[in-house]
Design a protein around this nucleic acid. Sequence first.
DNA 1: GGCAGTGAGTTGGAAAACACAACACACTGG
DNA 2: CCAGTGTGTTGTGTTTTCCAACTCACTGCC
Lengths: 151, 151
Amino acid sequence: MTEPQPVRMGDLPLGVRPCSLAAALEVLGERWSLLALREIGYGVHRFARIAGYTGASRDMLADRLRKLEAAGIVERRLYSEHPPRHEYHLTEAGRELFPVMLALTEWGDRWAVDSPALIRRHSCGQPVQVDLVCRHCGQPVTRDTIHPELA
Amino acid sequence: MTEPQPVRMGDLPLGVRPCSLAAALEVLGERWSLLALREIGYGVHRFARIAGYTGASRDMLADRLRKLEAAGIVERRLYSEHPPRHEYHLTEAGRELFPVMLALTEWGDRWAVDSPALIRRHSCGQPVQVDLVCRHCGQPVTRDTIHPELA
DNA sequence: GGCAGTGAGTTGGAAAACACAACACACTGG
DNA sequence: CCAGTGTGTTGTGTTTTCCAACTCACTGCC
């Protein structure tokens, strides 16, 4: 039995890391994927409208939606046979992207645009600023308070 | 004076949305960018090692690091003149990507890999599971408790 | 029935991004 | 002098991406 040890990532031997971030980007990292998911999350379920709001071309969007469906992130619901027509909805995996989207959007608000076009107001009435806390102890989670271990 | 009104995003007219998520992806959405930032965040500051851990080819990595520097997300620090050699470090904008990385990694742990290769342990001793709470009221932030408003 | 309009893609060709190997260059150590 | 290292750049194909045009199966209207 080896006690799990904290690891300094930079000390590991070179080589592509087995990494959940890389795995996530494999599915989500292509252009348009996250924008399409943003729209579906906003309640825009039809192909042409998703294309319209994201700016993606039809072929790109069709490709991304196929991949997202194959990855279990969106599901297609048939709303017309002849011709077959689908609505796109988030699965649980898709809904759980909410923290990712929110984090990216908040970062973009702060660092990638002059002034945000949209404000997200929390039900408490204030504009949302998110804090990350540990589910177990309730204390803040920061770069300094988490320590990677090899599984 | 118009009172700001909650918006249903799907009701807005078609057209590419001015959106901080899209703006963030403009900078971060290219392949390798986030993986390079992951490495720099892990304390890997030299070109060849970043390439080795991410799997990016040298030319791609050189391109991404240039763009990330131009976007103010990483800074180069000269550690040798003749020949000029740089270390890559995160700026504040880069460090603030931590919630993004963490959210993506947690999502990947759960939905994109069979079993995570790495565990992140919080200083409380438990594996980290992050909750999102509102900085103002301390209550959870979820899809249902935030409401977009046009600025 | 005829004919325009719509929604959801598919196809084809130009343009851009990417991967890989080779090269350049300024060192360092033997 | 020669091999090796670190950090890129260049050159050459291959793969993606983009955009416009097309198809197909309807729906509405007159």
